[in-house]
Lab assay of single mutants.
Amino acid sequence: MSIQHFRVALIPFFAAFCLPVFAHPETLVKVKDAEDQLGARVGYIELDLNSGKILESFRPEERFPMMSTFKVLLCGAVLSRVDAGQEQLGRRIHYSQNDLVEYSPVTEKHLTDGMTVRELCSAAITMSDNTAANLLLTTIGGPKELTAFLHNMGDHVTRLDRWEPELNEAIPNDERDTTMPAAMATTLRKLLTGELLTLASRQQLIDWMEADKVAGPLLRSALPAGWFIADKSGAGERGSRGIIAALGPDGKPSRIVVIYTTGSQATMDERNRQIAEIGASLIKHW
């Protein structure tokens, strides 16, 4: 067993022997301040990774656009098919120029040779490549099948209805392509620590998230040296922004954090800054 596999296998073990965790309302004060600064709703939840206990939450059962955070769930569904012998990570998928959609920095470079399922998941999570996500959605049967996968996990809230990039439209009061912070946090925890996926697939999923290259201005910008984070960000229309993450000190994750916002007129930089400040408060009061 590799060191990384050992780390993920012992996530519940280490967490069980940690000192009790206590909620700190100071972080919620910052979440509410972010709402004021952005002029928009902000949803927040913080779960203990081992027990699933909610440590703090704000608007945990209000719907927010998922945006690209759905790509972690998508690759979880792909990995479940791999575990069941219905898919192979090494299978190569070929596609054409007509398949390319807006923001496809990886797939646009491989029109000639195609990409493997493993490479597509890596591109979808680490670079948020939209064509990679659409190609992977095709392998599982489309958005409705991802929703069905989530329902089978016990998540009857999260739903995907459309493809990239239309799913980022974020129309107010439109339930399409949305989740709730509580539902997303619980589902992410199941994917990373539950028995739904094999140990190898859980490790692969967290490795992809740990290698995320496009979430630097968010929670990662607030992390002290030595902290662990595996995350996936999302951005959408109407001032929408979000991030889902597993993080913790001492090089291992111990909490799940989900943050979503929508309806702001603020710039992307300002949305990023507010999420980073929430992260800084979380870490300060850990």
Rank of each mutant, 00 (worst) to 15 (best):
E26V: 10
G114K: 04
V101C: 10
M1Q: 01
I125P: 00
V82Y: 07
L282W: 02
N130W: 00
I11S: 07
N173A: 14
D212G: 07
E119A: 10
F58W: 14
S233V: 03
S128I: 00
V214L: 07
D113Q: 12
D174A: 05
T193H: 14
E62N: 08
Y103L: 04
I206S: 12
C18W: 12
I45F: 14
R41L: 09
G39I: 09
F13I: 11
A124N: 04
L160V: 14
G251M: 10
N173F: 13
A34F: 09
P12I: 14
A23G: 14
R63K: 10
D161A: 06
L38R: 06
P60R: 12
L160D: 02
A222C: 15
E62Q: 07
P25E: 12
G154H: 06
N98V: 12
T178Q: 03
N50K: 13
S104H: 06
A246T: 11
F17I: 11
I11K: 05
L218H: 03
E102T: 12
E102N: 10
A222I: 13
T187E: 04
S51E: 13
V106Y: 08
H94K: 14
R118I: 10
A133E: 00
A182Q: 11
A34H: 03
D207Y: 14
L197P: 04
F64R: 01
A225V: 14
I125S: 03
L188T: 09
Q97N: 10
R41S: 09
G248D: 02
M115Q: 07
A15M: 15
G239S: 05
D129W: 00
L100F: 09
D113H: 11
G251L: 09
R162G: 08
G154Y: 05
I3L: 13
M184N: 01
F13Q: 05
E166S: 15
M67Q: 08
T27A: 06
V42H: 02
A246F: 12
P217H: 10
G43R: 00
W227H: 02
G43S: 06
H5T: 10
T179E: 00
A16D: 03
D250T: 11
A183M: 10
V8D: 11
W208Y: 06
L100V: 09
R7W: 08
E35I: 03
T139M: 10
A9C: 11
F17R: 05
M66T: 06
T116L: 08
Y95C: 03
D174Q: 06
L89K: 04
L136S: 02
T187V: 08
F22S: 12
R81Q: 10
L247T: 06
H24D: 13
V31P: 01
T126S: 13
P143T: 07
I256S: 01
K213C: 12
A23S: 08
Y260S: 02
A40W: 06
